[in-house]
Structure formats: C-alpha cells, structure tokens
Design a binder for these strands. Structure first.
Lengths: 399, 399
DNA sequence: TTGTCTCCCTTTGGGAGACAA
DNA sequence: TTGTCTCCCAAAGGGAGACAA
C-alpha cells in the first residue's frame, strides 16, 4: 500500500471541475484503496488505451460497440511522460478519481527508468486510518454510529473520563473540506464509543446505506479527516445523456492517437474504484515485470487483492494461457493477455485475465537487482516512434 | 409548437440506458418546451458538429479547449438521413433528451425534400397541459400544492361537489412511468383546489425547489401524466470524471468524421434544455431558410422565444453582422453566423448570434411556396461528397 | 384567485440503556 | 465487544382555515 503523496505532490483539484480546495492525498489514498498506486508526476509511464477504454466501458456499464473504428496508427501502449497528477472527488458521490496529463514520448533513457524506479521506492508508508462497514443500526434513523473500540482509542482525541458520561465534540473534514460535527460519547451498558448528534446528518447528506464504509484518519496537524467508500453497487447505469458511448470510446482513441501523432499532451481520468485495472503504469514497474518475469504456461504466481475493510491479501494462481484479449482491435497487446486460474475456487469473481505487471511470479524470487539496467539499446535511426523494440516494445536509448 | 409524435414514432427508450418503458411523446414534448421540434425518423436532416460541440460545452460548462485538433475533412454541416429518434429522460433528474441515429449521405433528391417538408407540416397540435412554477408554499414542508383553478378544472377529473369537502384520489404517471398518488381536495376559505397527501413525497422524490415547474396533462386514455421542468440553475458543473472534456469534443468530431468518411451511422444525444440551439435541422427547414431568406445587414426579423410557464412569444431584431462564430475551426460555417441586435433591451440575455433557420424575416412575407422546388442541380461527377454547392452547400440531385 | 402564516396534532426519529450474539 | 430493540420525549411536518396581496 502506497501513499500518493509523492506521486501527486501538487494534489490540487484545479482541473476541469474548477474546484478551489485541495484534496488531502492521504485521505484520497485511503478512499481509493490499498492497491491503488499513482505514478509520480515528472516520471515516465506506459499508457494503455485499451485499459482506458475498458474503464470507460465499466463506468458506463456498456461494452465497446463494434462500430468503433480501429485506429491503426495507435499502438496498444504509449510511452509517456506524466506531466501532472491531480486528485479529485466527485462532488455528488465522493467517488475519488485522478486526472493525469500525459505526453507521448518516443523513447526513454536510463535516467528516466531510474527516476521511475526511485519514485516507486520512495513512496511513504500509508497513513493509518480505520474503516468500518456500516451496519443496519449505524444507518438507521434511530440512534448513531457505533465506533469500534480500538478505532476510537487510536484515532479520536482521548476522552476526559472524569466526565460522566465522558463526551466531546469531534470536528472532521471530508474530501471536499466540508466540516462535519459529531458528538462523541462513551456510554451504555456495557460501555461503548458512539457518535450521536450530527451522525444522521452525515449519513443522509452522503446518502450512505448499510454496507457502505466510512473511514476516519488524522492528518499531520492531528485534524480528523473522514471519507466514505460505497459498496460496489449493482448496475447504476451511468449512461450519459451527453455523449454516446461510441463517441466516448472514439474520443479516447482519437485523443490518444492525436497526442501520439503530435507528441502533444492529453488528459485522462483514472477512476480507481470503477475500473478493474490501472491503465497508466509506472515505467519501472512495467519494465521490471516484462524483463524479469519469464512467463510460461503453468507458471505459478501471487497477486494482491483488496479485502473488506481495506486490507490486502494475496491469492495464488497459475497461468493457463497467453493470448490477446481482443485479437481484432488490439493484436499483440500486453493488456491482460495472461489467462489465469486461481487456487481458491471460493468467490469465483476473481478475474481470469491479468497483465504481467500485476502478478508476482513465485518461481523467480531473486530479482532484487535484475539485469535490465545494463540494457542499452540505442534508438535505431529511421525507426518510427512507438515501434516495438525486439523484446519490450519500448525503445530505450542510452543516456 | 410541434409534437414529436410523428418525429419519433418509435419513441421507446431502448437506447444506451437499456430502459424498458416507453416515454410518452406528448409528455416529453411538454417537458422539452414549445420551441423544441424533433425531425421525423426516415427524413433527411442537416447536422452541425459545431452546434453539437457547443451543446456538450454547455452541458459541461466548459469551453472547447484550443488543444482540440481540427478535423480538416469534416465539413461544418453534414447532410444525413435520420434513421431513428428515441426519447429519453434522465432517471436521476428527469431531464429530457433524444437519441438520434444519423447516417451521412452525399446528396438528396426532390422526394427527400418533399418528405422532410411534409413531416414538418404534418405535426400534430401539441397536447394541452398546464404548467405551474412552484412557489415557496408549494415546496415547503407545511402543506401541499395549490392548484390554479382553471388548471384543476381543465385537467383533473371533476370533483363530486356533493361531498363535503369535495375530494378525490389522483393517480399520475411521470416520464419513467412511475406512479404518484395525490389527494385532490377543494377546501379552505375562500375555496381552492389543493393537492395534499402524496405531494411532499413527490417534491422530495424529484428534489424540486421553488422556481422549478410541474406540469400535468391527460393522455388519450384520460390518464393523468405529470412532468417537471427545473429552473435553469447555476453552474451545476457536470465535469465528468469519466472523460476529459477535450476527449469528449474530440469524440464528437472523430465520430462524425468517421461516419462521414464511411457513410456509416452514428449516434448523437440532443438535450433540449441544456443547449442554446438545435444542431440537427430538418432538411426542409434548412433549405427554405437558406433559399428564401435574402440575408442582408440591417434586415429586420422576428424570432420565437419561450416564456415562463411554457408559452412562446416573438421578439423583433435586426441583423447587425454576418461573420464566422469560430473563424479558426469552422470557417464559412452557417452555424450562428448572423450577429443580431434586439429591439427590446429588457432582459438582455438574448443571444447575439443566431443561425438563419432560426429567424423569420419580416421583409419577405410571401414565401408560402418558394421557388426552391424547381431547383434541379445534377450532382457534378467527380465532386467529393459534402463539397459545397454554389449556393446551399448541399448537393441536390434530380429524382 | 392564490401565496403565506400559524395553529394543531400526528408522525418521525434522535438518544438512552437493555439484552443478546 | 458491538449489533439490534424498545422506550421516551423532542422535533419535524402534514393538513386545516385565517388573512392579505
């Protein structure tokens, strides 16, 4: 679990929304979940239009139409310089997302790879927080929020237990810097921590239901922050009335193709909780995965998943096939080209296709300093930008 | 004021949203407003990507970025066959919109023009309805809705005045076919029509506020229908977290350009209450305007506007200039290329640019059967599709 | 004719401990 | 340790005529 604090140093939501307030990066990260790992501004990334398109399809609950044209000049991945990352939250739903400005570049050097690698390694440990899935009682109109004991003791300011009953007013800020006041009281038989006055306003204001999660943390000034995470709900059908989904998919491809043709910047939104996979990958992460991992059928691997209450755990799996996810549109793409099976058949909703940078092979444990930093392949003159290098599909030039 | 009943005969919302219910076309029209006039499916239209882009900009409250590339092969207007029109309403906000499937065609014949003209003339008179702007009392938590006397007598089933007080249960359906129940009672001193029980559920369910409008009508089976129209509210900032506005604008242009290049169908959404102007114009309306109206500086004209409470009135104006709205992107476009001044300076929020088909010149009153049906200009061989004809910019071939 | 106010009484729902999982 | 229930009482709000614009 990584903090975006360095990845999005200028984490101010002055993007399209024109918001004024800055988003707290630790709170954003906590809401986004432990698997989300934003690349750092100023580093190189690999952008997968196919994954981007997939996210939009997931957001709209609508598959890509066969009508959407191919962009034959748009490769399945673009090496880009990530100029800018800003953190946002939907003002209506509090859904977190990031806006990234990418500029296609035709090659990278050793220094770019080192910087990307350094950025990955220099991520701060995540800020501590507690996250509770709301119960029916928490969201009912009768009474407040039952605070897990350890959470209250760890995260809330200590109560004055000489009072009878011990109680205090809490002030917490959400992602939009809105202030929420709660009465925190320690009472009942047996004793427990509760949030009473102010809680129901919060629940109705955020339209929370049992199954959604609320999370509290303290920032460096010891101020309380709170965020929400909605239970992944059934087809909300976001079907936009602004643009047809075809036009959206065309827009993604055309914007990327235009940027690639002109080496001009373009903007994407990454929506961690809508999409099955990240589609903007730090260069070092991509490079290591492609270079280090000798993929073969039957290979065993581990992969991280998010648990309830914002934890992580690894599941074991086996590679059962290597093939194009979309052999028509995206031939020879590395986007989720590995077919996999999972050891535990429980909860069979794990994905049956993954990308190589998502997994940790268990057969190759000693790649602490893999040999890829020695690779110096000069850019071949006359080679068109984005043509595939022999192994990587990306052109590295010596510094 | 025209009804979309013939324009959208198959007015079923089975579009992207995947809704099942059919939208009542009369109710949709009443919600859309008296100026909205959908072209009929199966007829020819002129599509203006510039106007489409403008609507998206208005929806997003975001101007087109200079980064958006030009599509040099995309003309400022496309002659299209309108395959399909379906009516929709946003499930969250009840905002009405229409989905149209357009297919670029390279020319039209006399018959197409006649069919378009016939469809314009064969529109049914609009269904009667009443529309009231909600007062503070109507939307307060204390008490119900005060029904204007004439409206209640015209639209609601008659009360049994032998009851004391006279009262009945009303059942009304909204655009989504949801049922709303109201107690309709005639009481108070002096006597008046009121909706009591059920009203506040409707107000909170639709999130209505003073200034929004509610409208009631009866369908051909005498069933009550009700719709809403929201007051044009301040910057709602719909800034999507799915696609950057640049990508959206590129998507519009790329989709239209792709369709034009392949003569393949594409889909647009028309959002009558978001956009300042219609961007899909019935061929006959366009043709008549361009042929009949000799535009000159200083020319006087009238133009229809919508009043409060869903009426119409004409304002007089003068043409003060003829110039490109966007001389860089859309050179020689007819989209809002007329600069105008208005006789009444009151409420100066009238637009200072209009398109020729929006106005009625007052200097040429006798164009009942204009001479354009005699024009038979054979399509010139070797002329690329969409090239501008000498006068019209559209190629007509003899039947 | 109809918008707002105020009064009256029902309904809703915060806030407490009891109790059980 | 914490989720649900029920009880109690305060606050919210629907439904009526009064009154005035």
């Amino acid at each position: 679990m990584k903090s975006p604090a360095n990845g999005a140093a200028a984490a101010v939501t002055n993007g399209e929304g024109g918001e004024k307030k800055s988003i707290n990066p630790e709170l954003w990260q906590a809401c986004a979940g432990p698997l989300v790992n934003l690349p750092a501004a100023g580093t190189h990334v690999v952008y997968f239009p196919q994954g981007h398109s997939e996210q939009v399809a997931a957001s709209l609950k609508k598959d890509v139409n066969a009508q959407v044209p191919n962009y034959p000049n748009l490769p399945s991945k673009l090496l880009c310089l990530l100029h800018n990352v800003t953190l946002h939250a939907d003002p209506e739903t509090d859904e977190v997302y990031a806006q990234m400005t990418l500029q296609p570049v035709s090659s990278f050097d050793k220094d770019a790879l080192l910087r990307s690698d350094l950025a990955l390694k220099s991520n701060k440990p995540p800020t501590e927080f507690f996250c509770k899935i709301l119960t029916a009682s928490d969201t009912s109109t009768h009474g407040g929020f039952s605070v897990p004991r350890r959470a209250a003791e760890k995260t809330f300011p200590p109560l004055d237990f000489s009072m009878q009953p011990p109680a205090q007013e809490l002030v917490a800020r959400d992602l939009h810097d809105n202030v929420w006041n709660f009465r925190h009281i320690y009472r009942g038989q047996p004793k427990r921590h509760l949030l009473t006055t102010g809680w129901s306003l919060f629940v109705s204001g955020k339209r929370l239901f049992a199954g959604d999660s609320v999370l509290f943390m303290r920032d460096e000034k010891q101020q309380l922050l709170l965020g929400i995470r909605r239970a992944s709900r059934q087809p909300t059908n976001l079907s936009s009335s602004v643009l047809s989904s075809d036009s959206m998919h065309i827009g993604i491809l055309a914007a990327a193709a235009h940027a690639a043709a002109n080496n001009s910047p373009f903007t994407v939104f990454y929506n961690p909780r809508a999409s099955p996979s990240e589609f903007v990958i730090p260069l070092a992460k991509y490079y290591k995965a492609v270079y280090s991992n000798q993929i073969s059928l039957g290979m065993r691997f581990r992969m991280m998943f998010e648990t309830e209450e914002s934890g992580t755990r690894r599941y074991m799996g086996t590679i059962t096939g290597i093939s194009d996810l979309d052999p028509v549109r995206w031939k020879n793409s590395q986007w989720r080209n590995l077919q996999v099976g999972w050891d535990e058949s429980t909860a069979g909703e794990r994905r049956n296709r993954v990308s190589i940078w998502e997994i940790e092979p268990v057969t190759a444990p000693f790649f602490i300093c893999p040999p890829f930093f020695r690779s110096k392949r000069p850019r071949q003159p006359g080679m068109p930008a984005y043509s595939r290098g022999p192994c990587l599909g990306l052109v590295m030039i010596s510094a």
